[in-house]
Amino acid sequence: MAEPLLTLAGVHTHIGQYHILQGVDLALPRGGMTVLLGRNGAGKTTTLRTIMGLWKPSRGTVTFDGRSIGGVPTPDIAQAGIAYVPETMAVFADLTVAENMILAARSGPIDTARLDWIFGLFPALKKFWQFPAGVLSGGQKQMLAIARAIAEPRTLLLIDEPTKGIAPAIIEAMISAFAELKRETTILLVEQNFRFAASLGDHVAVMDDGRIVHRGAMADLARDEALQQRLLGLSLDAHQ
């Protein structure tokens, strides 16, 4: 197997007095999509935030593209080629869609070919280009948040629950967009919606109580209902 793009080895993260990540080991291959599953509070969001440097790991190492990024300031991690779409989407509501995208493209104006490609993925953005992002619907905000992450080519996308609270019609559009995106870059997706995850994921990791409890190919997990039941239990059914 080729060298992984991202490796977490024995990562512990504390938030205040709470010990959230308790030794996460994860290796992300280059290319394709890895889905991080697990019940609420298992530590999925914390894992993404730790990779992004928004929480500092108290122990363990995070290696990205051969470089240690544990404890490195967030802006440097972003500049190393990791883009982040938080659960809250965090679009800048007072800024227009265009201004959100301008900020996302660090190295200058986005070239028209790429912009057209993004508009192709998320047509709503073109329509609302000069509108404040605050007036967008939840699904449109999610599209903007993802578009912002791919305004320029990035090596790794961290995406936190993009389907949360989103209408089914938009989720369908999102599936085709992700299918295209993962041809360009590597994606680490946190998801509760198993059907969505199974239709896109190449690899899967399941978390529980701050640890990775299962790693493998998504196809194997999708086929093995007993394993699904054991790893994911009822918590996922509730989200179907």
């Binding site: 300031p73 972003a78 982040y84 965090a90 509501a93 007072d94 800024l95 900020l103 660090r106």
Partner: peptide, 24 residues
């Protein structure tokens, strides 16, 4: 200006500005 956009964005959500790769 880009600086101005960053300030306005930072007033809303400083963490996300950092996650976009800017030293706030």
């Amino acid at each position: 200006t880009r600086i101005g956009l960053l300030i306005r964005a930072g007033v809303e959500n400083a963490e996300m500005v950092e996650a976009l790769g800017y030293r706030i």
